[in-house]
């Protein structure tokens, strides 16, 4: 594009006076002032009891609580994601039984409070003290004693995961619908089967749309785990810090501890989400063209390593061709 200018002197760049933004300075002064006041108050007010925060922030119960909360979050989200993919695919199925089943599932689990569901899963132990898998009227193959008090973890994961699956199913459905129909047609025209089209063509593209709200849901789940005392499951972060607060009659420092850990884990999850988004955005969100390949070398070696001779700074133009 710049070829015409080659050989001429470099142009004198416009050194324009930028527009001033006094509003930015005023808002900065107000915000910084408010933050200083808050910090000053937090330091000077003895009721915050920062010494207690320091004592208990790495308490075994608290750190274990973080671990259990993370385990609950991850396990419930994995369960929910697996179910949500299944539900979203069922919802698009040609089979009307599967379509309505999916709809009914979402209707039920989205339509009842998660707290109610957690209470119910806790009480399943009353309805079914043991769960066993076996041949009807025949021998038992596997059995699991739900009424064992240390087993509150499974009902908690089930309660959180099934509830979440209903929300995620709608997110996945929106993601699948966002993929251009031409993608499916192109894959069909190549003779690809339904499963391959879903897993290799549609779902990877839908993930771009699915990941941000799923990250949102994961962070939401991290905090929803604080409801598992309904089951009851009593090892998570909120329960651990509440128990400590009740023991020493100092709720505020322990709330600060809980908030600190939740924020820390949320921040880590956000970093993870960033990389997942980057992965699924490849080819779409990154427009920097790679270096050209030397065609001769490419042919000779049938290799795709970028050639050293290629211009590293090459930029492609790609006109957006919108069909009418």
């Amino acid at each position: 594009m710049d070829h015409h200018q080659q050989g001429h002197a470099a142009p004198v760049l416009n050194d324009a006076v930028p527009v001033r933004h006094p509003g930015r300075w005023i808002s900065a002064i107000i915000v910084v002032g408010a933050v200083i006041l808050m910090i000053q108050s937090a330091i000077t007010n003895p009721n915050f009891r920062w010494d207690v925060v320091g004592t208990y922030i790495l308490d075994v119960k608290v750190v274990q609580g973080v671990g259990w909360t993370l385990l609950l979050t991850v396990a419930a989200m994995v369960l929910a994601i697996v179910l949500a993919i299944l539900l979203a695919v069922m919802r698009q199925s040609d089979n009307p039984v599967l379509r309505y089943t999916s709809w009914l599932w979402v209707w039920f689990f989205r339509g009842t409070p998660v707290y109610t569901q957690l209470l119910f899963w806790g009480l399943v132990t009353v309805l079914y003290p043991t769960i066993s898998l076996g041949i009807p009227f025949g021998p038992q193959l596997v059995s699991y004693v739900l009424s064992d008090p240390t087993h509150g973890l499974i009902p908690a994961i089930l309660g959180l995961g099934l509830n979440e699956s209903a929300y995620l199913a709608e997110i996945f459905r929106a993601g699948l619908k966002s993929v251009d129909k031409g993608q499916t047609e192109a894959a069909e025209a190549l003779g690809m089967g339904k499963g391959k089209i879903m897993w290799r063509i549609v779902l990877p593209q839908a993930m771009r749309i699915i990941v941000p709200p799923t990250g949102n849901e994961t962070i939401g789940m991290l905090k929803t785990t604080s409801l598992v005392l309904a089951v009851p499951f009593t090892l998570d972060l909120t329960f651990a810090t509440n128990a400590l607060a009740n023991r020493i009659y100092l709720p505020i420092p322990l709330l600060i501890i809980a908030a600190f850990w939740y924020l820390l884990v949320t921040s880590l999850l956000m970093v993870g989400q960033h990389y997942i988004e980057k992965y699924y955005g490849k080819g779409v969100d990154t427009n920097q063209a790679p270096a050209l390949i030397n065609p001769a070398a490419a042919k000779a070696a049938a290799a795709v390593a970028p050639s050293a001779e290629a211009e590293p700074s090459l930029k492609m133009e790609f006109p957006e061709e919108e069909a009418k």
Partner: peptide
């Protein structure tokens, strides 16, 4: 995969795009 890759590069060469093998569609003209 290796056989398919070789055949694919030959096809890309046939349509004059051997040097664009590593480009994503958004980085190519219509």
């Amino acid at each position: 995969k290796a056989v398919a890759k070789k055949a694919a590069l030959e096809l890309l060469d046939r349509v004059g795009l051997a040097d664009r093998a590593n480009h994503y569609p958004a980085q190519l003209s219509g």
